[in-house]
């Protein structure tokens, strides 16, 4: 603070700090806090708000139970409340999206950071960026077109003789997973690229000189070094995927509901902001728990991610 005063003077410093505080407090914390408070109150007609029925309870949160449906995948079969099923599958497929983005990004980043010549880097990065200039809505629709039954993907696969009959791609969770991977892969690429880029080339050469085959170099040197980048990329992709509404809303099949769609239905169609808020906080809480557990398992510290 003292340094800021000296460098920018009193007026500017207070303006900066004041604006930041306003943004954080009024635009981020207060609305969230209002929603959190609302999530414990019942959804009432306007006349009853503030009346004797307006009491705090966990009733909104309990709405996730009830309405039992069959769970019948991964060789498992049991009864489960419909919303919990969607919730669990959303978390699971967000993790799948995260894993797939990592598998795609790892070789790409290694190529960019350690193999590609400095001269070709700007071009390669431009090629990565260009799709971002197109809006996410259009990109999602593009995938919808690619994946439709009579779409280009099936036409191509049939033309080269890989399949005999069209495959129904837009079914279950695969279209959402494919499109989310496409939408968020760059959030994995950049932190991972940064991490790999900071690896000293001599480390790779030293490992090779000591006799290590290529996979051992990756397993023992590149992967451990990249861990903070992987962690920060994974957290971003996972959180963005689990919280994405646009992509599942555009491309989803009837058999692949995303939990954000459930929340949206309750809030917008049911007009029940209280229950919607409760569900949204459950999603946030569970994602945070999932990330924390994953960080424990992979022994990543929060300070690594912040780098």
């Amino acid at each position: 603070m003292h340094d800021l005063f000296r460098r920018y003077g009193m007026g500017l410093t207070y303006t900066f700090v004041g604006l930041t505080a306003f943004w954080l407090l009024v635009l981020v914390i207060l609305p969230d806090f209002k929603l959190l408070e609302a999530s414990f109150r019942p959804y009432l007609p306007i006349v009853d708000v503030g009346g004797p029925k307006d009491t705090y309870s966990f009733n909104n949160y309990m709405q996730i139970f009830g309405n039992e449906v069959d769970f019948n995948s991964f060789g498992l079969h049991f009864e489960i409340p419909a919303r919990i099923k969607v919730f669990v599958l959303t978390i699971f497929y967000s993790a799948v999206v995260t894993l797939v983005t990592f598998l795609l990004a790892y070789p790409l980043c290694f190529y960019l950071a350690k193999v590609a010549s400095n001269r070709s880097l700007p071009t390669l990065f431009l090629l990565l960026f260009v799709p971002l200039w197109v809006s996410e809505v259009l990109r999602s629709f593009a995938w919808y077109i690619i994946l439709t039954l009579k779409g280009p993907l099936n036409a191509f696969l049939m033309a080269i003789g890989a399949i005999e009959k069209e495959i129904r791609w837009v079914e279950g969770y695969s279209p959402v997973v494919i499109t989310l991977v496409y939408a968020y892969v760059l959030f994995m690429v950049f932190p991972l690229y940064n991490a790999m880029q900071s690896l000293d080339n001599n480390q790779l050469e030293a490992a090779e000189d000591l006799g290590a085959p290529w996979w051992k170099i990756h397993w023992r040197i590149v992967l451990p070094h990249s861990k903070p980048g992987i962690a920060s990329g994974a957290v971003m992709v996972f959180m963005l995927s689990a919280g994405s509404l646009l992509v599942p809303a555009i491309i989803n099949s009837t058999t692949g509901n995303w939990f954000t769609q459930t929340i949206q239905g309750i809030m917008m169609e049911g007009q029940d902001w209280n229950a919607g808020a409760a569900f949204a906080f459950m999603l946030l809480l569970f994602c945070t728990v999932a990330v924390t557990v994953a960080m424990r398992v992979f022994r990543v510290k929060l300070s690594d991610i912040a780098k």
Partner: peptide
């Protein structure tokens, strides 16, 4: 076996 200028220890 090569010893690098910056040693390149892991």
């Amino acid at each position: 076996a090569l010893i690098f200028q910056n040693l390149a220890l892991f």
